[in-house]
Design a protein around this nucleic acid. Structure first.
Lengths: 198, 198
DNA sequence: TGTACATCAGTGAACGCGCGTTCACTGATGTAC
DNA sequence: TGTACATCAGTGAACGCGCGTTCACTGATGTAC
């Protein structure tokens, strides 16, 4: 879907990774079963090992896919709003911490969906997870070009932590209030309005 | 250990909950097995259901115990440093985001250790998890009496997110740099020095 | 264009294993007399 | 103080189940002639 598959097998491979990229965020690393993912991709579980050397190998690919998807969604939102004078930082914050993400784990940022379990994974998955964290910080940095790297890390931490706390409180007034507070604080502190009036 | 057990059975119960409070933070909700916890408490798995109605019931008790322990550790550090003129907010931030916590999952804050999996739990565990989040925010608020509730939530989110990202990067220079950046930013922005000189 | 065949993506039964949970039993504890 | 007994915390074997992984097989695809 997001790449250019040349063969039938590669098409199937992409379909499996797509399903896993959703499952991993919805159910966590530990909640992703080989059989479930294959079923969601319209296949039986037996064929799995023709595509991946192990369950962990799937997790690595799924993680990367999820990160790319999430990054693309944020980028798309920023491009849509740029002509209206919305800064890319504001757009990042408002997209990442949108109320709608309280309920939709499965299409959001994999770092927020999986962060606390990253240190518990096998070395290969841990490495791929660390790369996702670095990419998230890089994305924040790209939206805050004047700020030092340290600022981007702190903003990334606030984004991830706030989304998780909001989700833990629930898709209700309490969770939404927490997200709203984080959006306001981040924009007030770091945003340089792109257009004239504040 | 932290309560006053009157009977032999209650003593055993406490020992199981203590073991679970450590295991839940080290291995996550999904990584906690009934047999493993009982073994760590020096028992066989068969006796488990004389103490708890289900595995979930243990998770609920373990979560509360872990939260209390973590809160007590932060409070103790603050009391130790108060006479030296360290504000309780600064102490909270420096204790919560101490470099040593990159490696020691098992004795730290359960919200940071389990945050991303909270929305995936059974209703009972989810509720107990939400209470832990509220208590964390309350603890931050107690250290920032002048600030509004919204500020406390954002600080809590930054604490949780930064610790998770630091741990995901690893117990190395990269992870420590991230924690250091978060400590500095939080103290610079919210701390009111208790003593004279800044 | 039509037939024969090799390839190989995908099927589905089977495996060993560890999980949460149940239950008949044991043996130490403490009370009754 | 000493014996008999009831209680019940803890034991360990067993259960059904779902997991990751393996493997002999199938049947559609596409090439060779």
């Amino acid at each position: 879907m997001s790449r250019t598959p040349n063969s039938r097998k590669e098409e199937t491979h992409e379909r499996i990774v797509d399903a896993a990229a959703r499952a991993i965020r919805r159910h966590g690393y530990a909640g992703v079963g080989v059989a479930d993912v294959m079923k969601e991709a319209g296949l039986t579980h037996g064929g799995f090992y023709a595509h991946f050397g192990s369950r962990d190998a799937l997790l690595v690919e799924a993680l990367e896919r999820a990160g790319r998807e999430s990054f693309a969604a944020v980028t798309r939102a920023a491009e849509r709003r740029a002509p209206k004078g919305v800064s890319s930082f504001r757009s990042l914050v408002e997209t990442y911490l949108a109320d709608a993400h309280l309920a939709s784990l499965e299409t959001g940022c994999p770092v927020a969906a999986l962060g606390c379990d990253m240190p518990r994974q096998s070395p290969a998955v841990r490495e791929a997870s660390a790369v996702r964290v670095q990419r998230l910080i890089a994305a924040v940095r790209a939206a805050l070009p004047a700020a030092p790297r340290a600022t981007a890390s702190v903003v990334a931490g606030t984004l991830v932590g706030s989304l998780q706390l909001g989700r833990a409180l629930g898709d209700n007034a309490e969770g939404r209030a927490l997200l709203s507070a984080a959006r306001k604080a981040l924009i007030l502190q770091h945003d340089i309005p792109a257009a004239a009036g504040h």
